[in-house]
Amino acid sequence: MNFIERPKQISVGVLALQGAFQEHIHMLQSIPKVSSILPVRTAEQLRSIDALIIPGGESTTIALVAEHSGIWENLKEFVRQKPTWGTCAGMILLANEANNTKKGGQKLLGGLDIKVNRNQFGSQIDSFESLLHIPQITSSPEDPFPAVFIRAPTISTINSLEVEILAKLGHNVDETDASTVVAVKQGHLLATSFHPELTNDNRIHKYFVEHAINYIVSGQNGKKEISLKDGNQNTQKPT
């Protein structure tokens, strides 16, 4: 086996079609392990980055603009191979299935074996802030993460054992149960219902960058190949 040096820094792109992408960019500027940050609007830009963040915004808008801009297929390919994190709208786009979509349905990039409920909590009046304990990220429940839920989706079904639950809501919100899942990880993909980019807490951004570096290292070593299920297709479990 060849000795592979662990990359000290990676380049991160933020999908810049619609939504709060500058907020992610400002957040990434505080992380030393990020060598460059690129707002991504074209297939060429997508090819030059190690990892991608799909920001909050309107998932229908982002999907339509991506399609009209001719990068939908490139994005689909990217999220199947490289570390990607979706926040809110981004989580919807990374899901294999979604509820409460617009008439005629919504296009999804897919990759995560989950089903999401769009606008789980209702309209803007039901948007809220809440403190979350995320065991892999927050050291203790006394040091919670400030989560901002804006017309947020939640994860209604998990369809694979590969999907790891990172966080649950923790308290009941109207009809939504405390056990509702709001953050998951599967292979190289990460998804959160809430918006870390709308806070001043960069712990999840740091976590994603570390996660991406680990994935890149494991990929180079050939130890672990992570394949993702695409929609209804069955693929083999990684060995």
């Binding site: 810049a16 079609l17 619609q18 939504g19 709060a20 992408f21 500058q22 907020e23 909050g56 915004g57 309107e58 808008t61 809110c88 709208a89 803007q124 009046i125 948007s127 809220f128 802030e129 901002v148 839920f149 804006i150 017309r151 918006h195 709308l198 806070t199």
Partner: peptide
Amino acid sequence: ATFSVKTGLAQNLKNG
């Protein structure tokens, strides 16, 4: 209805 929740929706609408 905190101010962050209100401005957060505006931030989500950006570039739209």
